[in-house]
Amino acid sequence: MSAHAAEAADLIDHGHAGDDGHGHDELVENNYMKVPNVKLAIWTFLGSECMFFGSLIATYFFYLDKSIGGLLPKEVFSIGITSISTFILLTSSFTMAMAVDTAKSGLMSKSRNWLLITALCGATFVGFQVYEFWHFVHLGLTLQTSLFGSTFYVMTGFHGAHVSVGVIWLLMVAKLVHSGKIPAERAVFVESAGLYWHFVDIVWIVIFTFVYLLEFAK
């Protein structure tokens, strides 16, 4: 009983609950996990996304070299061009990290600029991908051509869709930072967008390495 009384006194002394005063969705953030709600939600979401891309990438490898007819990966891939777009996307992870860092330091206008640069890099990557798809289709590889066509376009297409969603997300965050709705003490919203952005980058590293580069190592 005395142990319980001591525990109760401790809990009262060290404060508990109450709203976090920022007027957003979190009502009572007791923060048991030492991670803010938004960030924990993004981490959970990324866990779910791992299974999503895991399934798509597994499908690609399940069907690798099982196509009947149609162009082979080596006949369409252009490592030079894809390397450039990959470089741009990876650079955007650096600019994203700068956006998070400046936001945490309270340099909000700098953070906004880094966010816009990151979004620009993302949009450029999507532009490269649109060109790549257009180019491959003209070479004769379509969604319907073969298992390679189907799996390649759907897998990289969904990655491109994720990058596009990320660009819109970053633009929204940049606007909120600009209008002062995300001040330094809510930098976690910049950080959350950053977590998603880095994840999308990591997925691309996996795809670029195993889908593109390995073709040429065989």
């Binding site: 525990e7 809990l11 009502l27 007791n30 048991y32 709600n37 924990l40």
Partner: peptide, 15 residues
């Protein structure tokens, strides 16, 4: 599911 994982992990009453 994301919502409830965050709720149960982070929003429990003191103690």
């Amino acid at each position: 599911s994301i919502n409830f994982i965050v709720t149960i992990l982070n929003m429990r009453a003191p103690g």
